[in-house]
Design a protein around this nucleic acid. Structure first.
Length: 472
DNA sequence: CTGCGTTTGTA
DNA sequence: ACAAACGCA
């Protein structure tokens, strides 16, 4: 293709945007997925140094489905932000739709690229899809170059003395910290970029009333991180578990969309003591651990990490499941969490554990149903962290501890939301009852709040009995 | 081999 | 205190 010659997209190709090249020397396509972080991205540096590059962001249609309004909104804002950022670097955003493996090939052919740089990343749908991309590029005679690992520090590389991967968090986190990590990359310079003649119309998404979503984009991520380090990281150890105080870092969505690299966070935390900083690094280690586990066992995104759990008896998701999703189980802390999720696209991590435990241990519904519901609504919904968090709760994942992991929703509520402020905020009908954690039957009738869906003590025993059955 | 750890609940 | 299994050093 001659320099400057536009590629006219066709409806059939699914490629949106006219492309012209600023150079006709061996163009390449850089495939962005979640990785929007520019300054920090080794993949981007490698690609830009290798020649003219067409940055390509693949929009998966699944992200634009009927559920997940907040996540669609967040992606929209991310794209706007990325677009502005790329414009400053004299390039533009290209968006393709459809199956990634097909669209990457189409985009490469559109600029006559002979290489595609793919950030090494098993992506939001697992490693299998990356393998399909690899096959499609190979079939089209296009070279695939894997560069960097933007999602996590180094999934798949932490091993014990015998060369085996870890199945338990604590030894993993020690080995992971001992190995260490590289410094963040400098922003790419000197690369040349393919240019788009026009940019894509980025769709807008209407938000439900009352939703105050976080700012999106690389700059917003950096600002949020700086604010957190200044104000809240010192008390993070104690405060992170208090949904009523809401002093978690809120970095999860930025990390999920690659707007900040974990290496940047780790570098900023380095060299200073403080329990809060140590604890925050441990939380990053959990994210790294689950990235590592999913990298090794892509099947565990859907199937039980411990296969014997497939033999347990479960309830089909029915009316109970609907009550759980809609926040009307009659357990105030559970309902508060589920309503926060539905209304805001985010849920405090303590509540993720409580609500997940309730679905799996009290309602005996398989974790996959809950995980899918979470992924559809969470702006930060991440396949590895979400699904392995669910497996952890279900007892079927790493660090299985069935006897330790049946949360008492009432006790948890009183412990972590002692004054009931969190409940009152998200379950407003309980605002003036005497005990928002355990409203009396009369109070429930008076304010039209449901009676408990189940007897927790009985269902706890039922969960233990079902577990005992598969231990034979 | 042996001891340690495991974001908890119940008594 | 104890519930209890198991990966790990």
């Amino acid at each position: 293709m001659a320099a400057g010659a536009p590629v006219v997209p066709t409806a059939r190709s699914g490629y949106e945007g006219d492309v012209s090249t600023s150079s006709d020397a061996d163009p390449a396509v850089m495939w962005f997925r979640r990785d929007l972080r520019l300054a920090d991205n080794p993949a981007l540096v490698s690609a830009s140094e290798a020649g003219p590059v067409l940055p390509l962001f693949v929009l998966d249609p699944a992200l634009w489905g009927p559920s997940g309004v907040s996540r669609r909104w967040y992606l929209t804002e991310s794209l706007r932000s990325l677009d502005a950022s790329l414009r400053r670097r004299r390039t533009s955003l290209s968006v393709v739709r459809g199956k990634p493996e097909r669209q990457v090939v189409l985009a490469a052919q559109a600029v006559d690229a002979t290489r595609v740089f793919v950030a090494e990343d098993f992506g939001p749908y697992g490693r299998e899809r990356d393998e399909r991309v690899e096959e499609a590029l190979d079939a089209a005679g296009i070279e695939l170059v894997r560069v960097g690992s933007p999602y996590a520090v180094a999934p798949g590389t932490v091993v014990n003395g015998s060369g085996k991967n870890y199945q338990v968090f604590t030894p993993f986190s020690r080995a992971w910290a001992d190995i260490g990590w590289e410094e963040p990359c400098a922003a790419p310079t000197g690369g040349s970029w393919l240019e788009l003649d026009s940019t894509v119309e980025i769709p807008t998404v209407d938000l439900p009333d009352g939703l105050e979503p976080p700012a999106a984009g690389e700059a917003a991520a950096a600002q949020r991180w700086a604010d957190f380090v200044d104000a809240d990281v010192t008390d993070y150890d104690d405060e992170r578990d208090r949904p009523d105080h809401d002093r978690t870092s809120r970095m999860s969505t930025h990390l999920k969309y690659g707007e900040i690299h974990p290496r940047t966070i780790l570098a900023d935390l380095a060299g200073s003591g403080g329990k809060g900083r140590t604890t925050y690094r441990t939380e990053i280690a959990w994210r790294e651990f689950y990235a590592d586990v999913l990298f090794r066992r892509p099947d565990s995104a859907r199937d039980y990490y411990k296969p014997e759990f497939a033999r347990m008896s479960y309830a089909s998701p029915g009316d109970d499941f609907d009550a759980w999703r809609e926040g009307r189980t009659g357990f105030p802390i559970v309902d508060a969490g589920m309503r926060q999720l539905a209304a805001s696209g985010w849920m405090h991590n303590r509540l993720r554990m409580i609500t997940a435990s309730f679905l799996v241990k009290d309602l005996h519904v398989e974790w996959q149903h809950g995980a899918r519901h979470f992924l559809g609504l969470l702006a930060d919904g991440d396949l590895a962290s979400n699904n392995h968090g669910w497996q952890w709760v279900a007892g079927s994942g790493t660090d299985a501890s069935p006897y330790f992991r049946i949360f008492n929703p009432t006790t948890q509520g009183k412990k972590f939301d002692p004054r009931g402020d969190y409940i009152r905020r998200w379950v407003p009908e309980l605002a003036d009852v005497a005990d928002p954690h355990d409203p009396s039957p009369d109070d429930r009738d008076r304010v039209d709040y449901p009676h408990p869906l189940v007897d927790h003590k009985a269902e706890r025993q039922e969960a233990l009995d079902r577990y005992a059955e598969i231990k034979q």
